[in-house]
Design a protein around this nucleic acid. Structure first.
Length: 888
RNA sequence: GGGCGCGUAGCUCAGCUGGUUAGAGCGCACGGUUCACAUCCGUGAGGUCACUGGUUCGAGUCCAGUCGCGCCCACCA
């Protein structure tokens, strides 16, 4: 094993573990993972930084695969490819994993205090960052480790403060008392996006509120009876006949026994429930708005920890759910509970901990979105940013056009501290880009205190495309690598992350941070279920990789489904791709034996020369031509982000065309006595380019094998992307026709029960294809397993041969005199069926060609194709009919 | 209440810009130990492309509608 590529012993089967350990080091230590200017300018992709909360999962394996393919592809195409890795401190999720650890020791973060708790989280982050780096390497990620960066590193932290101050100074960040989503378990405010809504079964309770003047009552329907303790009004639709007279009157709130007004408001749906709504401005976003319109006070009856407060009177101290039950009981006893109806409605839960979210009025920091959204909509509208697949464009626009202000403060300890300081003396509020403020900028007082809250983790993520490059410093990296080209991530974080990178990129850098947004789907298990630890259906990338190899996992992931679609992964699927890697490995072993014995010419770069056309026979030209075709297709598909389809075509080309047909045909000349051939040259040429083509998709096995072959340069990872070579249409066709004939002979053999090993006689009337059959005589003989002494190629019209199976393929007649194995009647039946088929073909083609519309409107080539087809079908029919006549 | 995706062989999915008789892998059936590979090779069976209508010379592919499944967004008590 040499440090610099070089020859390694190839075993009998591909051993991924050995190759992976060796080649990753080779790439890394060779400096190939850093961007190197090769004249085509930069290609930049910033990695979505994994949360440092644990192990990598299959979603990470998927994004690594896609991004690594794109990076390797661009690198081979001569771009200074920068794939910038990093990790995210994961705010609330990061805090939570450490809190859970503490819980095992019977402690809470409050037992430690803020400072030592944060230190504890840092310990976790440092340990797990190393793990995550190792896991990314194991997946073959060819990212630039010299630029690896963490969201809490000094650079990004400084960027966060500078960005905050800038937005604050510009009036785009403000502090206000608003209705926000509150998680009573995490004890923090959340943004709308961190609340997951789902339909859950519950009840609709109807409560009776008596009018204060004794003239009757109003029934209200609610899903949250416990909030009635904080009711400060009842709302009805102003046009609702039933309640029109009540507007302006008061009702007496049961239990709390206080008068609250009845108001008329358009927001009330007269058709729902009783048409009257209790109004709790402190605990419902709708009620908050209604209350504001009518000047109703907001009485908060809950604490931030999910219990009732003193305003809840007799229920103070109870949990919300207990209070609900008790309030309902109490109302029932008092006769004011009128009905309890089963009802499913939407419940919001915390994205992290699944607790039920409470809407609460709270003083928080917000980003004023309207001015930022405007240009972020524009750049997508005018095509500066493109989504792949395209359908996500409208998803993005729809969200951005209706975006609400973004609540960015979190009552957590772990994260970027809000860079705002309050002066105890003069009451000044000061934003700073420094880590600490010594004195109040207003009055010079030292009695200042920093806001205790931290920022939403996505605030720093939103700056990631430039904070990673040194911003706000005007670094060389920033100048060279901003804006980037592709942002690859999951469709589930379009709003959380992609949208925010776009408007923050525009705000701070003046131009959008990337051009193409490639979105991948979710990796599911074999049954289409989301993988989760509780379900126990998780496939761990490293376990799978250890068993089948990284290349196998990557290829399984990439070929499973296209961009934007979810995909199913199973061990069987990975195993299939392991087999593919092994197939390629063995094909190369085969080729190497032939190549080692031949003197293979090289071009000026060291790549094997294209074999001399005059020395090539049809199979050589066929495979070279097919390779050229595959290069064109894989290039086109990779450029179009159709990586799954590119992968499939590579699979087809390598397994079916190269291995099953070319190598099998090549053996005839290699092992035969035909003397010199272009086979070793062709093998070297085709294989070397094929490995280059496959390298982004299967980096390890290709590097391993390529190093064994004559090749240009030192490392496949930086070898030039192959240009399509020559096409040989005539040879492609002639070999394809021989392939078809071979298949038909094999078919006939199987149908007639000929033992696989037995060599049989054959008489071929090739007609116009005589030169093809003459040239490929040995290949045909060998692959169809014919007896050389009883294999004849005859000219002229086919002459009946008794007791023979007859095959008509193209315009060629083949007779297999199988004597006693032939049942004449069955043979006649078979031919009749074939004639029927051909007649159908003839009819279709004839009617199409008779159709004036078709002939005049369809493209020339399509019409010509049908003409040719008709011609050959006619010929085929006459051959078949003659044969039928001969059978008597 | 809006929006999106999916429905193609028993299963999982391709089919990219509409153009022969719709493909792959797995599974199934039959048969194979020749010196690249049994992690393999050969042959085969299997599909009214969810349904209805339309556009077109031509539709799995484009349009409209229907049915079924899934997802996203939205402050309907």
């Amino acid at each position: 094993m040499t440090q610099h590529g070089g020859l390694r012993e190839l075993g009998k089967a591909y051993d991924p573990a050995q190759a992976e350990a060796h080649w990753y080091d080779f790439w890394h230590s060779g400096g190939y993972l850093k961007p190197v200017d090769r004249g085509r300018g930069p290609f930049v992709m910033v990695m979505p930084p994994p949360n440092v909360t644990g192990e990598l999962h299959m979603g990470h394996a998927l994004f690594t695969t896609v991004e690594d393919i794109l990076t390797r592809y661009k690198r081979m195409n001569g771009y200074a490819a920068l794939w910038l890795p990093g990790a995210d401190h994961a705010g609330i999720a990061g805090q939570w994993v450490v809190e859970r650890e503490l819980a095992k020791e019977g402690k809470t973060r409050h037992d430690l205090g803020r400072e030592s708790f944060v230190n504890r989280v840092w310990d976790w982050m440092e340990a797990y960052q190393e793990r995550i780096k190792g896991q990314l390497r194991a997946l073959g990620a060819s990212c630039d480790w010299s630029r690896y960066i963490f969201t809490m590193d000094p650079g990004p932290a400084h960027a966060v403060r500078v960005a905050f101050k800038h937005l604050y100074d510009k009036g785009l960040i403000y502090r206000g008392e608003r209705m926000i989503s509150w998680c009573p378990r995490c004890m923090t405010a959340l943004s709308d996006l961190e609340v997951v809504h789902s339909q859950e079964a519950s009840f609709l309770w109807t409560l009776r509120y008596p009018l204060s003047d004794g003239s009757g009552f109003i029934d209200v329907a609610t899903t949250r009876p416990e909030t009635m303790l904080g009711d400060t009004g009842v709302a009805v639709h102003p046009d609702d006949e039933r309640y029109r007279d009540a507007i302006g009157k008061h009702v007496r709130l049961p239990i709390m026994d206080r008068p609250i007004p009845v108001v008329g408001d358009d927001a009330v749906d007269a058709a729902f429930g009783t048409g009257a709504v209790k109004v709790t401005p402190a605990h419902d976003p709708n009620d908050f708005e209604i209350g504001r319109r009518h000047g109703l006070p907001a009485i908060a009856v809950m604490n931030t920890d999910g219990t009732m407060n003193d305003e809840a009177g007799p229920f103070a101290g109870q949990t919300i759910l207990d209070a609900r039950a008790n309030v309902v009981d109490r109302l029932r006893e008092g006769g004011t509970l009128i009905a309890t109806t089963p009802h499913t409605h939407s419940i919001g839960r915390c994205d992290r901990c699944d607790s039920i979210i409470e809407p609460m009025i709270s003083k928080q920091w917000f980003v004023n979105m309207a001015p930022l959204a405007k240009p972020a909509i524009q750049v997508v509208h005018d095509g500066q940013i493109r989504f792949v697949p395209e359908r996500f464009t409208s998803v993005y626009l729809n969200w951005m056009e209706n975006v609400h202000d973004w609540c960015i403060s979190r009552q957590l300890w772990w994260g970027h501290r809000i860079p705002i300081w309050y002066c105890a003396d003069c009451g000044a509020v000061a934003a700073t880009s420094d880590e600490f403020l010594i004195a109040c900028p207003g009055c010079g007082s030292r009695r200042i205190e920093q806001d205790p809250d931290v920022l939403d983790t996505w605030f720093s993520s939103g700056l990631w495309t430039f904070s990673t490059l040194g911003w706000p410093e005007q670094t060389e990296d920033l100048r060279l690598y901003y804006p980037g080209h592709v942002m690859e991530t999951g469709y589930d974080i379009i709003f959380l992350w992609v949208a925010r990178m776009i408007f923050l990129g525009i705000e701070f850098m003046g131009v959008p941070p990337f051009r193409d947004v490639y979105l991948h789907g979710t990796v599911r298990d074999a049954n289409g279920q989301r993988m989760s630890k509780t379900k126990g259906n998780v496939l761990d990338p490293l376990t799978v990789t250890a068993e089948y190899g990284t290349d196998a996992l990557r290829f399984a992931l990439i070929t499973a489904s296209g961009p934007g679609n979810d995909l199913r992964l199973s061990n069987e699927r990975v195993e299939q791709q392991r087999n593919f890697a092994n197939k390629l490995f063995n094909a190369t072993r085969f080729a190497l034996r032939a190549i080692d014995m031949a003197h293979i010419g090289r071009d000026s770069d060291g790549a094997p020369l294209q074999p001399v056309a005059s020395a090539m026979s049809a199979p050589d030209k066929w495979i070279v031509s097919r390779l050229s075709h595959t290069i064109v297709e894989v290039t086109r598909l990779t450029d179009a982000y159709q990586l799954h389809e590119a992968g499939r075509q590579l699979y087809e080309f390598i397994w079916s065309e190269f291995c099953d047909w070319y190598i099998e045909a090549a053996k005839v000349r290699l092992y035969g006595d035909s003397g010199d051939s272009a086979v070793p040259q062709t093998l070297a040429y085709v294989l070397e380019r094929t490995l280059r083509l496959l390298h982004p998709y299967m980096p390890y096995v290709t590097e391993e094998l390529w190093q064994q072959l004559p090749h240009p340069g030192d490392a496949l990872i930086v070898a030039p992307w192959p240009n399509p070579g020559l096409r040989y249409p005539a040879d492609e066709q002639s070999f394809a026709s021989i392939m078809q004939a071979i298949r038909e002979v094999r078919n006939a053999r199987t149908e007639h029960g000929v033992e696989p090993g037995r060599k049989i006689a054959a008489i071929v009337y090739p007609g116009q294809s005589s030169s093809t059959y003459a040239e490929l005589r040995s290949e045909f003989q060998s692959l169809a397993r014919l007896d050389p002494r009883r294999y004849e190629i005859r000219s002229g019209e086919p002459i009946a041969t008794d007791r023979a199976v007859s095959i008509v393929t193209g315009n060629v007649s083949i007779f297999l005199p199988l004597a006693d194995m032939i049942d004449v009647d069955a043979e006649r039946g078979r031919i009749e069926r074939e004639i029927e088929q051909v007649l159908g073909e003839i009819e279709r083609a004839t009617s199409m060609l008779a159709n004036q519309q078709f002939v005049s409107r369809a493209p020339e080539a399509v019409v010509a194709g049908h003409r040719e087809r008709l011609e050959s079908a006619e010929e085929r029919r006459s051959l078949l009919e003659k044969r039928l006549g001969d059978l008597g």
